[in-house]
Amino acid sequence: MKTDAAPKGWLVLAFIAIYFVWGTTYLANLFALEAMTPFIISALRYVVAGLLLATLAYGKGQAFPKRKELRDLAISGTLMLAGGSGLVVVAEQYISSGSAAVIVATEPLWFVLLDRRRWRLYFNDRKMITGLLLGFLGIVLFTRFTPMHSPQGSPSGSPLLGTMIVLAGVILWVIGTLFASRRIKPNAYTLWHPTAQLLAAGIFAGLIAGLAGEWTVFDFREVSGPSWGGLGFLILFGSLIGYLAYGWLVTVQPPALVSTHTYVNPLVALLMGWLFVGEPIASQQLMALAVALLGVVLTQTSKVHAEAHYDGEGEVETHS
Score class of each variant (00 low, 15 high):
Lys2Val: 05
Gly9Ile: 08
Gly9Met: 09
Val12Leu: 13
Ile16Gly: 13
Ile18Gly: 09
Tyr19Ile: 09
Phe20Met: 14
Gly23Ala: 13
Thr25Gly: 09
Thr25Ser: 13
Leu30His: 13
Phe31Thr: 09
Glu34Ile: 13
Thr37His: 14
Ala43Trp: 08
Ala43Asn: 08
Arg45Asp: 01
Tyr46Gln: 09
Gly50Val: 03
Ala54Cys: 06
Thr55Glu: 08
Gly59Tyr: 11
Gly59Ser: 10
Ala63Lys: 15
Pro65Thr: 10
Lys68Ser: 12
Leu70Asp: 06
Arg71Leu: 15
Ile75Ala: 11
Ser76Arg: 12
Thr78Lys: 12
Val88Ala: 13
Ala91Thr: 11
Ile95Tyr: 07
Ser96His: 11
Ser99Met: 15
Ala100Trp: 07
Ala101Ile: 12
Thr106Lys: 11
Glu107Lys: 15
Pro108His: 12
Phe111Ile: 15
Leu113Glu: 07
Leu121His: 13
Lys127Cys: 08
Met128Lys: 01
Thr130Pro: 02
Leu132Ile: 08
Leu132Asn: 02
Leu133Val: 08
Leu133Glu: 00
Phe136Met: 04
Val140Ala: 01
Pro147Met: 03
Pro147Ala: 04
Pro147Glu: 04
Met148His: 06
Met148Gln: 06
His149Gly: 04
His149Ala: 10
Ser158Val: 02
Ser158Thr: 04
Pro159Asn: 01
Ile165Thr: 05
Ile165Glu: 10
Ala168Met: 11
Ile171Pro: 06
Ile171Met: 14
Trp173Arg: 07
Thr177Met: 15
Thr177Asp: 13
Phe179Cys: 07
Ser181Phe: 11
Arg182Asn: 12
Arg182Leu: 10
Arg183His: 15
Thr190Gln: 12
Leu191Val: 08
His193Lys: 06
Ala196Trp: 14
Ile203His: 05
Ile203Gln: 05
Leu207Met: 14
Ala209Asn: 07
Ala212Pro: 05
Ala212His: 14
Gly213Trp: 01
Glu214Ile: 08
Trp215Met: 06
Thr216Gly: 06
Thr216Lys: 11
Thr216Val: 09
Phe220Lys: 11
Gly229Gln: 07
Gly230Ile: 03
Leu231Ile: 01
Phe233Arg: 07
Phe233Ile: 04
Ile235Ala: 05
Phe237Ala: 03
Phe237Gly: 02
Gly238Phe: 00
Tyr243Asp: 03
Tyr243Met: 15
Ala245Asp: 06
Tyr246Trp: 12
Gly247Tyr: 10
Gln253Asn: 03
Ala256Tyr: 04
Ser259Asn: 03
Tyr263Gly: 01
Leu267Lys: 01
Leu286Val: 07
Ala290Gly: 03
Gly295Leu: 06
Gly295Cys: 06
Thr299Arg: 00
Thr301Trp: 02
Lys303Gln: 14
Lys303Leu: 12
Val304Trp: 03
His305Thr: 11
Tyr310Val: 04
Gly314Phe: 02
Glu315Gly: 15
